[in-house]
Design a protein around this nucleic acid. Structure first.
Lengths: 188, 188
DNA sequence: GTCTATATAATGATAGAC
DNA sequence: GTCTATCATTATATAGAC
C-alpha cells in the first residue's frame, strides 16, 4: 500500500464517516481522530466543514466515474453493464444494510439542511443516470432510455432504504433478482 | 381550530422540524422558538431529546394508523385502497420534493446515528407493509402478498429519494403512473 | 506540516424564582 | 406551567510555538 498524503487521508476518512455517521454528526475531532492527527493540523488542510464536504463529493464523483469506466470496459454487452449496476446492491450489501446508499443518504441530508452542495452531491446520481441511459439506448430503448435510467436508479434507492430500515439481507437479494428480471424484459 | 396543550404543540412542531431539518440538526432552541416558549419550559414537558423523539414517533404511528383506517373505509376495493397509498406521492409532492419521505429519511438518519429508536421508527414502515400485504392478499396474491407489499414500499421510497435529489416533480407523476400500471398487472 | 492552547458560539440539560 | 439564569460539554475555528 502506497503512503498517501495527510490531505488525501483526511478526505478518505471523512468520506467514510460522512457515510457511516452522516455529515452533520461527523465532527472535525472525529475525522482528526480517525486520521491520527490533531484538530489544529486539520485546519491547515481544510478551512471549513463545507470545504471538506466539497472534497469528499469531488472524490466520490471521481471514484464513481472510474467505476463506470471499468464496467464499460469489463462488460461486453449493455445488459451485462446494467447488471454490474444492479449487482452493487449485492456487493455492498453489508454497508447498505447498515448505512443505506451513500449517495441517497447524503443528498437526503443536504436537502434537509438546505445545503448549497446538494446539487453537487446529486451530480453523483447524474453520473449513474447518464451512464445507464447510454446503455439503455444501446439496448434499443432510445426514446425511453432516460426514463428507464432514472427508474432503475430510483428502484435501487428504495431497495437500499428498506433493506437498511429493516436490516434485511434477503430483501436485497430478492429485489436485485427482481431487477434482473425486469431488465430481461428489455433485452429479449 | 381548537386550542391544544403546550405538550401536544411541542410534539407537533418537533415532528415538523425533524422532517424538514432532520433529527440531529433540530435543536431544543429551534423547537421552543417555533412553539413560542422558552427552552426551560421545554424541559418541563420532555426531559431529553430521545424522549421527544419517542413522542414524535408515537405520534407518527398513530397518525399513520388513522390514515390507513380512513383509506380502508373510504375505498371500496383492494385496488382502490392500494391506489390511495400510491397517491400520497402526488398529494405530498411539494414536501417530498423538498424533504423526501418523512419515514425513510428518519430511519436513514437513525441508522447512521446507531440510535436505539431505529426499530420504533421503522415500525411506521411496518404499519404500511402489513396494511398493503392485507390488500394484496385480498387481491388473490396470498402467497406473494408480503413480498409485493415490501416491493411497493421500496418503490415509493426510491421515487421520493430521486424526486428530492433532483427536485423533479415530473418524475413523481411519471413514476406514480408507472406504479398504477404495475398494480394493474395484479388486478386483471 | 504538525502540534498545543485558546476563543467563541451553540448544544443538551438543570436549578430555582414566579 | 412558564420563566430566567446557569452549567457542562461539544463544536467550529484561530493563533502561535516548534
Amino acid at each position: 500500500m502506497s503512503k498517501q498524503s495527510t490531505k488525501t487521508n483526511i478526505i478518505d476518512k471523512a468520506d467514510q464517516l460522512f457515510y457511516e455517521s452522516g455529515f452533520e454528526h461527523t465532527s472535525f475531532a472525529g475525522i482528526a481522530s480517525r486520521v491520527g492527527i490533531s484538530r489544529g493540523n486539520f485546519y491547515y488542510h481544510f478551512k471549513s466543514k463545507d470545504e471538506i464536504l466539497q472534497a469528499v463529493i469531488d472524490r466520490r464523483l471521481a471514484n464513481t466515474q472510474q467505476m463506470l469506466d471499468a464496467w464499460s470496459e469489463e462488460a461486453a454487452t449493455p445488459e451485462a453493464r446494467i447488471k454490474c449496476f444492479i449487482n452493487i446492491l449485492i456487493m455492498n450489501r453489508d454497508k447498505i444494510k447498515r448505512y443505506g446508499c451513500p449517495v441517497g443518504s447524503l443528498t437526503n441530508e443536504l436537502s434537509k439542511l438546505g445545503h448549497p452542495a446538494l446539487a453537487e452531491a446529486s451530480s453523483v446520481f447524474t453520473l449513474f443516470k447518464d451512464w445507464l441511459a447510454r446503455e439503455f439506448s444501446a439496448l434499443g430503448q432510445g426514446r425511453e432510455a432516460a426514463r428507464l435510467a432514472l427508474h432503475l436508479l430510483a428502484r435501487s434507492q428504495g431497495i437500499a432504504t428498506i433493506a437498511s430500515a429493516f436490516d434485511d439481507e434477503d430483501f436485497l437479494y430478492q429485489e436485485a433478482e427482481e431487477l434482473n428480471r425486469w431488465l430481461g424484459g428489455y433485452t429479449r
